[in-house]
Design a protein around this nucleic acid. Structure first.
Lengths: 341, 341
DNA sequence: ATGAAAGCGCTAACAG
DNA sequence: CTGTTAGCGCTTTCAT
């Protein structure tokens, strides 16, 4: 086992100073090509490995960016991370991921841990945090991007969409199809407690229904991440409900796809006997039949823009504090106009 | 903007030495509780943030583990990462993820970059790497776990399953249901080039078919990550094929779910008019109707065991070099016994 | 249980 | 274009 070789040895053996070695690694263009070639050859020969961590201690630039997400196991979040990661890679930053399981206290613990890594920026999901999280984040003096929601008072930057408007709009669309007895499915309160976004979606629905002067029904599910269970729970409430619901709007892509799957397995005809819509899209919706009518949040784009704006801020560029990426209506066959059917 | 405070200032202001401060942070139990409380209070008050990177430079332990995967956008890989991450977290390691897009040259570049982060271990997908990758990995002197395949000559450790056997077994099962004219769908050669696992799956199919003395048909797809496109391409070849195929085994969960979706959208009855099976499972299969009959690789378990074994090796424990986690047959309704139907 | 001293491996002024 | 110098902030023997 040969001993570890440092930049010092490379310097000694090649006859250059450590600075020149350092430069020829991190900024080759400032070194004469003769020198560079000689050094590179020596490095290749000996298999010297540059210690990035030592460098960042001195330079004060860790190159790390922290992204904190609720879970890695829903495709909306892995697509979002994919967007972030791509943008960071282009700019030479490295990503450290923290997973909260939708728990704000866990988010706090993650932030507490990650500040020790001296990251150059934070990208977090949501605009609601514990006081300690906020303090830690602000104290770090690094740029922060909040995502997946929009607010007029971000900690620093925000890139997202209005969960209220998204829900409002899908409800509006469902109403425009002449559905009259519409239910909204949402996580139970205890599961919403940490998930401000679900509440905003429920509000969006209620608000639009009030305008239409329609009666509202709420169904609940307890396992927001479990497609099948959401589907089953919603179906059970639907079945036992006394008045005749003609459309269910699910508060998430998870519950929406789960419900379609549940109904399919019961050969319950959609949209003939019941319309289904949702707030949120995923790669699954387009594989189901009928395809779910829903609102797509362009999560990868949120990731890309969040990373982009964060990097801009790191580089002291002037960045727009509030970026609303909006959303897009996905017109599936899971609802149909009630007049013309 | 208050200046950054270091361990030195904490030492000075509390009247202790830097060693004591350091200990009370990373190894509190060796410090008297009176001292610890005093220091902790001071830290809380001033918001001092420990610099983890500086510490690891001195201690020689970065705490980083590198995981390299083909993509983050297939749930099999995010579930796998989830398993790894969970185990690492329990043991105080931090995860750095590299994404290859199924390209071995990209894998090489990622490894080249990541060795500079002085990681304490590597977890890679696959047992096939470029020569340079192998050299870099071995040169790093860190433990390495190869995954998703099994080999009797791992670089270091391996945790996986036999792609050949998995494919062999699903073929065996399909044959046992008295299907006679079975096609196998696989990525085109140019897309397999870097993906040894697809070749092994094709071989498993061919081998079992040979034993059964059945004629083989191969269908190809060109975009292994695109569910819908795989499905369409396979369907087109099926439609234009002259002899009457009664079952298609798809080489991946992606193509399998894509094909079911495609057939559903054409109201093509499964398994009545055509049986569908696959090699590989994902969260989508159980939401489709009929549910895909396939082989499940227990990817999260692979992640957990890989991380576990890596950590064991880091801690100089004796770890079994080769760990075959096997696979499990998932019995969906996408195939049916041809005799009794 | 605590302190003093040494230095992990690198980068960044600054000088030439 | 290259070298000299002076640490980055922490951990870790080795003492006491």
């Amino acid at each position: 086992m040969k001993k570890k070789i440092t930049i010092q040895e490379v310097a000694k053996k090649t006859g250059y100073s450590t600075s020149t070695i350092s430069r020829s690694i991190s900024n080759p263009s400032v070194v004469s090509s003769k020198t560079r070639v000689k050094i590179e050859k020596f490095i290749k020969k000996t298999g010297y490995v540059h210690n990035y961590l030592a460098g960042s201690l001195k330079s004060g630039k860790s190159g790390f960016v922290i992204a904190i997400i609720p879970t890695l196991r829903l495709s909306i979040f892995s697509d979002y991370i994919h967007g972030i990661k791509e943008k960071l890679r282009e700019n030479g930053f490295e990503l450290l991921i923290g997973v909260t399981n939708y728990n704000l206290k866990t988010e706090e613990e993650l932030v507490r841990k990650f500040v020790s890594y001296k990251p150059e920026g934070f990208i977090v999901v949501g605009t609601k945090h514990t006081e300690a999280t906020t303090r830690l984040l602000l104290n770090s003096k690094s740029p922060i991007v909040e995502t997946w929601n929009i607010t007029d008072k971000p900690l620093d930057l925000v890139v997202g969409f209005s969960n209220f408007s998204a829900s409002h709009q899908i409800t509006d669309y469902v109403i425009s199809l002449n559905y009259k007895n519409i239910a909204f499915a949402t996580p139970t309160n205890e599961h919403m407690e940490n998930e401000h976004r679900s509440k905003r979606r429920l509000s969006g629905f209620m608000s639009r229904m009030k305008i239409a002067k329609l009666k509202t029904t709420i169904f609940y599910y307890t396992e927001p991440m479990n497609h099948k269970l959401c589907g089953k729970q919603i179906f059970n409430q639907f079945k036992e409900h006394d008045s005749k619901i003609d459309c269910i709007i699910c508060g998430s892509e998870t519950s929406g796809t789960g419900l379609i799957s549940e109904l399919n397995s019961r050969k319950f005809q959609i949209p003939k006997k019941l319309g289904i819509a949702a707030v949120g899209n995923s790669d699954i919706t387009s594989l189901l039949h009928p395809q779910l009518t829903t609102v797509d949040f362009k999560v990868e784009e949120i990731g890309i823009i969040a990373a982009n704006n964060l990097i801009g801020k790191i580089k002291n560029q002037k960045i727009k504090k509030i970026h609303d990426v909006g959303f897009e209506l996905i017109n599936g066959a899971s609802v149909v106009n009630q007049r013309t059917k």
